[in-house]
Amino acid sequence: MSVTDVSPAVVVVGRAEDVPPGEGRTFVADGEQVAVFRLRNGSLHATQAACPHAGGPLADGQTDVDVLVCPLHQYAYRWSDGSSTSGAAPIRVYPVREVDGDLVVTV
C-alpha cells in the first residue's frame, strides 16, 4: 500500500449465497486476498486469506462463534481482533457486511 492511498476501499466481493453456512470462501478485494466466513448464527467475518504462520488457507478452516481454526496446524484466531489463542502472530480482520445480498468488505 502506498502512502498516498490512505482511504479504505469498500468492495463488493460476491454474493452471500457464495459462502455456505459455517464455511469460508476466498475473494479478492482491492488486490487483497480476503477470506469471508458466514457462521451458522448468521454473523459475517472476514480475515486475511493465508495464515501468518505457514501460509495456510484459512478459508478451509473450521469455525465457531469465537474463533477460526487454521486447517494446517490447528492454530485458532479470534474473530474479535485476529489474535491467536496460543500466542502465535495475529491475523488481520476486516469489516464485512451484507447489503442486498452482496458481501461488502472494507479493506
Binding site: E17, D18, V19, P20, E23, G24, R25, T26, V28, Q33, A35, A49, A50, A54, G55, P57, L58, A59, D60
Partner: peptide, 15 residues
C-alpha cells in the same frame, strides 16, 4: 456446497 472446490489461496505465491 457452493464453491466446494473453489481455491482458497488463489493468487499469491505461497511456500
Amino acid at each position: 456446497t457452493p464453491g466446494q472446490f473453489r481455491p482458497s489461496l488463489p493468487l499469491v505465491a505461497l511456500p
